[in-house]
Amino acid sequence: MIRRYYAYRYFFLMLLPVVAYFALFHYAPIYGVLMAFQDFRVLKGISGSEFVGMKHFRELFSGLYFVPVLKNTLIINAYKLLFGFPAPIVLALLINEVMRPAFKRIVQTISYLPHFLSWIVLSGIVIEALSPSRGPINIALMELGMKPVFFLADTDWFRTVLVSTAVWKNVGFSAIIYLAAIAGISGDMYEAAEVDGIGRLQKMYYITLPSIAPVIVIMLILTSGSIINDDFDQIFNLINANVSSVGDVISTYTYSEGIAKMNYSYAAAVGLFKNVAALVAVLSANFIARRFSDNTIL
């Protein structure tokens, strides 16, 4: 045993800083989950605070706020999946139909842009673009004689804003993988179709789409594992008090409870719950993925 390790000593020497890194920055802080089972008080610290067992977990489901937050998280994520997943496929199919290379390149380049910008920058842009007095949509509404909408402060619209801006940010970049899959389709099939006199829309439907179906299935399974993982950066930068009832999700809620309101232990319980739920989600997605192909996350 030791001899085998000795034989690989240089490899372990390489591995050592990485293992040390994970031990220090990922394993060492895990003792923090103890807070979830305590009534953490600043002056006493984790070592001195009183243990209260599952109190905070019971509060999660009996309390007023966690269940709505969980609901928000699932609803927003479900919509993001529902619209965000097919969008890049459609975009890839559309781009594939473009014959002019210059147009293709320009559209693609533009569509990548939001992906490279932070949510701080994007939220600044979104807030400006949805302004009730200057935003193009609102100006158009007013020109049509309708009332402008304060999208970011309206509970009926806020989730729509979250979902559409998330789709908008990622659609271009996510299309890359489908474009690659489309590029891998053999030209023979199209030629055969050409001979049969099939239109372009039909070609797309009967050849392109089925050819990339395996990729679509894999991607679907992989993304569905992240149903509980919300986008803190996005929501934290766009949310405001008016819409917190529909926009507050687990990560922003954990932040505001644990940091802004000093309910340290309760927030730790929320965080722990989310971690476990995320693990279950990813493992089941992985399990399904394994059954469909040899592509797995792990």
Partner: peptide, 11 residues
């Protein structure tokens, strides 16, 4: 002003 709904201050 019907726009009072969105608030008088729009940013």
């Amino acid at each position: 002003d019907p726009e009072f709904v969105t608030g008088e201050n729009t940013g």
